[in-house]
């Protein structure tokens, strides 16, 4: 790699400008994960098929494995890390929690970003609309039913707001600290 092949690009990710020096071949997904440490975006197939790496670029869902980081300069990028507001989950995240819409969770960030885009474009989708919008995302655990339920629930506003702070019983780190005294 020659020095002249390095490109300086500033990515605006979740509202924060992050200057980067990358090779042109650096995929957006790898810039997010490797260079910026935003590992919420997962890589499944790396060929644009599974939808795991879906992020929003200027509000629209894209496969971040099929876009180069140098192409995203000046764009507003939203990753799954940008959904929650502090301790308060995004309504769609809360709905995934309520409806148990994940098992292993690997595909979840991609589904959330696709779902967020859908609900912004169409706040009242029917089931067929939800399934069409999520058809580009693959889940190998859930069978999709609970994911569809969660998006519909979020659209209904049925999922109540939920914060991490309301759920001390699932704070594993605190339990470990208490038990082991670290």
């Amino acid at each position: 790699m020659h020095q002249e092949d390095i490109v300086i690009v500033t990515l605006k990710v979740n509202g924060v400008e992050r200057p980067l020096a990358v090779e042109p071949r650096r995929l957006l997904c790898d810039a997010l994960r490797e260079d910026l440490g935003l590992t919420g975006t997962n890589l499944g197939c790396e060929q644009g098929v599974c939808g795991s790496c879906t992020v929003l670029v200027d509000g629209e869902s894209v496969r971040s494995c099929l876009m180069f980081a140098v192409q995203a300069g000046g764009c507003e990028i939203t990753t799954v890390e940008g959904l929650a507001s502090g301790e308060t989950l995004h309504p769609l995240q809360a709905a995934f929690w309520e409806k148990q819409a994940l098992q292993c969770g690997f595909c979840t960030p991609g589904f959330l970003m696709a779902g967020v885009e859908l609900l912004r474009r169409n706040p009242e989708p029917d089931e067929a609309g939800v399934r069409a919008a999520l058809a580009g995302n693959t889940c190998r655990c859930t069978g999709y039913e609970h994911i569809v339920d969660a998006v519909l629930a979020a659209a209904d506003g049925a999922a109540r707001e939920r914060t991490f702070a309301e759920e001390p019983e699932v704070d594993v780190a605190a339990e470990v600290v208490a038990r082991e005294g670290r």
């Binding site: 644009g48 939808g51 879906t54 629209e60 869902s61 894209v62 496969r63 099929l66 876009m67 696709a114 885009e117 859908l118 919008a133 058809a135 580009g136 995302n137």
Partner: peptide, 9 residues
């Protein structure tokens, strides 16, 4: 033409 994210790009 493919799924939503593909059609967006």
């Amino acid at each position: 033409v493919g799924h939503v994210a593909v059609r967006n790009r």
